[in-house]
């Protein structure tokens, strides 16, 4: 998650172009609805349409190809084992067998369906939400009535993940400067333990100082935002089109 946030802080693509011009709240809502619809679909034709739709959104959003591919593959790596196991665990008609283990056609189809769903959802997520600046995402979530503490968590993660990373690199450098080379021995494990422990202590102390600094500027539990969002015509058209397409998908699946 952190590298998605990190990279998205520098706006990707032209902000006035394609999906970037659409109200962030609309993008989040459409994205959430799309995920629910896609998960509910079973028909392969409809799933194929969903993947094509997600691809189209990715193209309209001008997602950088290399980075996007890397992220999609990272997600696929998560599910690949489950997909490989499915043909062996779902009962049905035999496809082939490895020793005592029987692979079934039903299992294979189930695995393909899940792979299509996962990729469609991730692509759409990257296109609609991943292309947003983390700050904008936070504010949009706040306007959508997501609990303030979760939004604060997002803000502070975005702000301090880099500071923490720097601290880690500094400590790590200081270790190397004293000829530390990681090996698989007790000394290495203990030193890495100290390193992580020290990071934890530093972060805790920093969080206390940050809170003190916030109190000095009148913080009393609420974060106010400067941004205001306004729904325009393009937003309504995008939302309308999105819901029309999704309704059609649901109708085709269940009617």
């Amino acid at each position: 998650m952190s590298h998605i946030l990190e990279r998205s802080t520098g706006a990707v693509g032209n902000p006035a172009q394609g999906v970037h011009g659409i109200d962030p709240r609309v993008r989040i809502v459409v994205m959430a609805a799309f995920a629910v619809v896609v998960v509910a679909l079973d028909d392969f034709v409809l799933l194929g349409i969903a993947v094509v739709l997600a691809l189209a959104m990715a193209i309209i959003a001008h997602l950088p190809v290399a980075i996007t591919l890397r992220r999609v593959v990272a997600m696929d790596a998560f599910v690949v084992f489950m997909l490989a196991m499915l043909p062996f665990t779902v009962p049905g008609e035999e496809m082939f067998r490895i020793g005592p283990f029987v692979a079934t056609w039903e299992g294979l189809w189930r695995a393909i369906a899940i792979a299509l769903k996962a990729n469609a959802v991730v692509l759409a997520l990257l296109a609609l939400v991943g292309s947003m600046e983390a700050v904008t995402l936070g504010h949009a979530l706040r306007h959508l009535r997501v609990p303030e503490s979760i939004v604060h968590l997002l803000f502070f993660t975005v702000r301090y993940v880099e500071v923490l990373g720097d601290e880690y690199r500094r400590l790590r450098l200081a270790m190397r400067a004293r000829a530390f080379r990681p090996r698989s021995n007790m000394h290495t494990w203990r030193s890495v333990g100290y390193l992580l422990g020290m990071l934890l202590v530093h972060s805790l102390e920093r969080s206390e100082r940050v809170l003190a600094a916030m109190k000095c500027r009148g913080y009393s539990g609420r974060l106010y935002t400067l941004d205001t969002f306004q729904l325009g015509r393009t937003d309504m058209v995008f939302a309308g089109a999105g819901f029309a397409v999704m309704s059609a998908l649901v109708w085709a699946q269940f009617a």
């Binding site: 702000r159 301090y160 600094a213």
Partner: peptide, 10 residues
Amino acid sequence: DQLFCPTVAE
């Protein structure tokens, strides 16, 4: 410690 918001303006 003091600058905790993502952008300067905020």
